[in-house]
C-alpha cells in the first residue's frame, strides 16, 4: 500500500515539474534546461516572502506564486524573446546559460545554506494515515492535489479558452498564427510565465516537504525523462510519462538496487524512443537539422 502511495507522490512531483517543460516546448519548440533553476528561484522566493510576512503564510505563498509567474515573463521578455528565430540549439544553450546565472545569483542572494521555508512559514508537516496503514505527509498530499488542479486547469485552458487556443495555434504554426493576428510574443511570454509558475510551485512544495538547497536544480533535470517519454509536446504524455518513470524508480528502489534509480529512467526513455521516436503521445515533427 505504502508502495502505491510512494509511486503516486513521486509521479505527482515529476508531473508537476514536467508540465513546465511541455508548455514551453509545445509553444515555442525550445527546450528549457533552466527549469530546475527556476524551481529553485520559486522556492527561494517563497522563503523570502515567508521570512518577510511571517504572520501571513497564505499571503506569502500567494505572493511567491505571483512573483514566480512574473519571473517567467521577465525571462522571456528580457532574454528568450531575442532568441526567437535563432537556431534551436542556440536557444537551448541560452537557457543553460540562464541556469548557470540563476544558480550563481541564488547563492549570491540567499547563500548556499540549507533553508527551511516550512519553519519560516510557521507551519508543520504532519503525516496522515491512509487506509492500509499507508502514510503520506500533508505537503505530499497537497502536492498531489496541486498537480491535479494544475493539469485540469491547463487542459481546460488549452482546450477551451481564447488564449489557450492561441497558444496551441502558435505552437502548431507560428507564421500562420501571427498572420491571423495572434500576438506571438504575448503568447510566448504567457507560456514562459505559466511554466515558471508551475516550476516555482513544484519547487515550493518540494522544499516545504524536505528542505531547500542547490541540489533542487538536479531534481528538475530528473523529471526530464518523464517529459520525454510521454512526448515533449503532450501534456497527457507528461502525465503518463511521469507515472511510468515513477513506477520504474520506486519499484527499483524497493526490489532491486537503489543505485539504479538514477540510470533506469534513461533506459526507459531509450527503450520508448527507439520504438516511438517522438515519445508516447508526442506529435511527429520535422526537426531534421541542428
Amino acid at each position: 500500500m505504502q508502495l502505491a502511495v510512494n509511486i503516486v507522490v513521486l509521479a505527482a512531483i515529476y508531473a508537476l515539474i514536467s508540465c513546465g517543460y511541455v508548455l514551453i516546448y509545445r509553444v515555442s519548440r525550445v527546450l528549457n534546461l533552466a527549469h530546475g533553476e527556476l524551481m529553485l528561484v520559486g522556492a527561494y522566493l517563497l522563503y523570502s516572502t515567508a521570512s518577510l510576512l511571517g504572520g501571513n503564510p497564505l499571503t506569502a505563498v500567494a505572493m511567491a506564486a505571483v512573483l514566480g509567474l512574473l519571473v517567467g515573463v521577465l525571462v522571456y521578455v528580457l532574454l528568450m524573446r531575442r532568441m526567437t528565430g535563432e537556431m534551436v540549439l542556440a536557444a537551448v544553450l541560452c537557457t543553460i546559460a540562464l541556469g548557470v546565472m540563476l544558480r550563481g545569483a541564488t547563492v549570491l542572494i540567499w547563500s548556499a545554506q540549507v533553508r527551511h521555508p516550512m519553519e519560516a512559514l510557521g507551519w508543520s508537516n504532519p503525516s496522515l494515515v491512509l487506509f492500509g496503514d499507508a502514510r503520506i505527509s500533508l505537503i505530499s498530499a497537497i502536492l498531489i492535489g496541486a498537480t491535479a488542479v494544475v493539469y485540469a486547469a491547463l487542459f481546460g485552458f488549452l482546450g477551451f479558452t481564447r488564449w489557450g487556443i492561441r497558444m496551441r495555434a502558435a505552437g502548431q504554426n507560428p507564421l500562420l498564427a501571427s498572420q491571423r493576428g495572434i500576438q506571438l510574443h504575448g503568447v510566448y511570454a504567457l507560456a514562459w510565465g505559466l511554466s515558471t509558475f508551475t516550476a516555482g510551485l513544484a519547487g515550493m512544495l518540494i522544499s516545504l516537504d524536505s528542505s531547500l538547497d542547490g541540489t533542487m536544480t538536479m531534481i528538475g533535470l530528473k523529471a526530464f525523462p518523464a517529459a520525454l517519454v510521454g512526448g515533449l509536446d503532450s501534456l497527457a504524455g507528461a502525465l503518463i510519462g511521469s507515472a511510468i518513470i515513477a513506477i520504474a524508480e520506486v519499484l527499483l528502489i524497493q526490489f532491486v538496487n537503489p543505485l539504479l534509480s538514477d540510470v533506469v529512467p534513461f533506459f526507459v526513455l531509450l527503450a520508448v524512443l527507439v520504438i516511438r521516436p517522438w515519445g508516447l503521445f508526442g506529435s511527429k515533427e520535422e526537426l531534421d537539422r541542428v
Binding site: 538514477d262 540510470v263 526513455l269 517522438w278
Partner: peptide
C-alpha cells in the same frame, strides 16, 4: 539511436548513455 531519432530527442538519448557510462 541516431538512426531513428532526430534533434533534441537524439540529444537526450545520448544524455542517457552518458549517465550509463558514469554509473
Amino acid at each position: 539511436p541516431s538512426l531513428r531519432l532526430r534533434g533534441l530527442y537524439l540529444a537526450v538519448s545520448t544524455l542517457g548513455l552518458h549517465f550509463i557510462v558514469v554509473y
